[in-house]
């Protein structure tokens, strides 16, 4: 049968994939997608912990509440982040992070 560790390892591997994308990719939109992937990996471990620690015979719904709020905040973050990327593209005409060097001294 599937154990809690299986779910945590799957979640950790998804987080690692997202981290690799954030570090290795140069397209700012793909970096943003990989950030979403890392948030979802955290959600998977929260749901797994909620199911494997039943309180009173039911899953621990406090964990799933955190998942609900993370999804909501991530949706707001995507909207604001993409608006910033569009504004950036309008002024710099690029989505390549190495071309955005205004802050490098």
């Amino acid at each position: 049968m599937v154990t809690l560790n299986d779910y945590l390892i799957a979640s950790g591997l998804l987080f690692g994939t997202g981290l690799a994308g954030v570090v290795l990719r140069r397209n700012i939109i793909v970096i943003f997608m990989c950030l979403e992937m890392m948030l979802s990996a955290a959600n998977l471990s929260l749901v797994a912990f909620s199911r494997f620690r039943p309180t009173g015979g039911l899953p621990d719904y406090d964990g799933q509440m955190l998942v609900f709020f993370i999804i909501t905040v991530a949706a707001a973050e995507v909207a604001v982040g993409l608006a910033i990327i569009v504004a950036l593209f309008r002024t710099k005409r690029t989505v390549h992070v190495e071309d955005i060097t205004s802050l490098s001294g």
């Binding site: 049968m1 599937v2 154990t3 809690l4 560790n5 945590l8 199911r51 494997f52 620690r53 039943p54 009173g56 015979g57 039911l58 899953p59």
Partner: peptide
Amino acid sequence: GRKPLDRVPLQLAE
């Protein structure tokens, strides 16, 4: 974390 899923069943009647 080694506990399989069927060892932590949901007890709906309780």
